[in-house]
Design a protein around this nucleic acid. Sequence first.
RNA 1: GGCGCAUUCGUCUAGCGGCCUAGGACACCGCCCUCUCAAGGCGGAGACCACGGGUUCGAAUCCCGUAUGCGCUACCA
Length: 503
Amino acid sequence: MAPVRTRIAPSPTGNPHVGTAYTALFNVAFARQQGGQFVLRIEDTDRTRYDPDSEGLIFDTLRWLKLDWDEGPDVGGPFGPYRQSERTEIYREVAEQLVQKGAAYRCWCTPQRLERIRQEAMARKEPFQYDQFCLGKTEAERRRLPDCADRPVVRLLMPDEGTTVFTDLIRGEISFENRLIDDQVLLKSDGFPTYHLAAPVDDHLMRISHIIRGEDWISSTPKHIVLYDALGWEFPKLAHMSLLRNVDKSRISKRKNPWANLRWFREQGYLPEALVNFLALMGFSMPDGREVFGIDDIIAVFSFDRLSVTGPGFDLTKLDWLNGHYIRSLSVDQVVDRARPYLIAAGITTTDDVYLRRVLALEQERIHKLAEAPELTRFFFEDVTPDPKLLVAKGLDAARTAELLRAASDAFGAAGENATASELEERFRALAEQQGVTTGQLFGAIRVAITGTTKAPPLFDTAVTLGLERVLRRIDRAIAALEALAPPAATGPAPSSPPPGRG
RNA sequence: GGCGCAUUCGUCUAGCGGCCUAGGACACCGCCCUCUCAAGGCGGAGACCACGGGUUCGAAUCCCGUAUGCGCUACCA
């Protein structure tokens, strides 16, 4: 049996689309499972939409996801070149062959004429199809007639009767009536092929055994089959994946949905393994029901009948959970490595790796996306100016809170530089009792004083990590803030007057 | 409009004629843990399997129709 070879064939027209990774994932999984090869081919035949930066972005993001290819433009391979713009000669030859065999014909109709007959068909409420005006005419004959372009296109001649049937590995049998299918342009007047020539030709020449692609190609499959038949080629096996949708089932658009761009996931701080896992969950399920798994697990059990046919809605909340799960499963050192670029980008540029490591150890289970790391950890690196209103615990006033903080400051001082978190906890529990306040009130005030927030890792672990110097300095600042607070002036709501003092 | 593909809890899904009074995960709610936030544990609510007809002793599972969504209908891919 011929070796299994799959491919992903993106167009370099901007930022890589999430659907590209989605489709690539299953192409890789199946090829690996079968001991075959996975090919990356760049479909750059549309010169008007070509973006020179796009190809590099495609390489980068697919590698980021560890969806590596065995053959491609940058790694070479025995069936290259792998950029369609470098293969135009091949397509022209095949087009010529098809014309010779009578399976295709040249068409000189101008875009204006095509547009006109399209409008006429619409006016008659009939489906538009090319009227085969040029079929059977020589160039000389055609030139005597109106609406004749300088350079012809080549159109595929579709049979006007019969049915084209094919078996989809995911959906079963699908059939189309040939007479309803238009004579597709294969070779454009600029000499470049359309998808409908280039992709089938390359799939054959590159020995692709299984075409796993998006369901948007189902409708054009009969054209490709007719083309293969005309050339006497054997058609690869087919599997059409459902297209990813938004939660409301609408189409994902790059304009409206940032997650259409693969790069967005990296910017947000999603781990590639989490994204791969999430994409796999969109339509694939493990036989044992596991939901957390990697590509190796997919490879172990992959089967086309485990792919669902429904277009899945893209719900980021599950991705967030998965991502948090993966972050928690990392070692602290890995978290440091992964979070560092996001911290640096946000202006947190510590060189104290020991400290950074301790900080991230505390925040690891609180990070859902790496891009959140700077906000979660900033108070470890920069002194805070706590909001006095947050400082004052329930049931206390500013003066009493300041008093508690003074006592806390003394207690930290007495505990010294080397106190452990549990030693501190014991000491401060005693302090709360002695002061006649709850631990919640005391700890809460200290927390806001030293972290600036009510949401932080356990207080004494945080204090130990911050170090005595920072803790004492911040408590002093908090006391000062409380003292600057005007005496409780009967709580005038006064929405137009912000808190006095420090802006 | 024509053609094609689809339709199970809010979301992702399990299910491939009897094991389904439909299972799991995320999200949600409650409780526990607890110095806050997380994380974790336990529990709960949530799907007349789009709707209507068949086939069958028996249907979420097979067939037909309707509705809805999505795709194609370009010298885009």
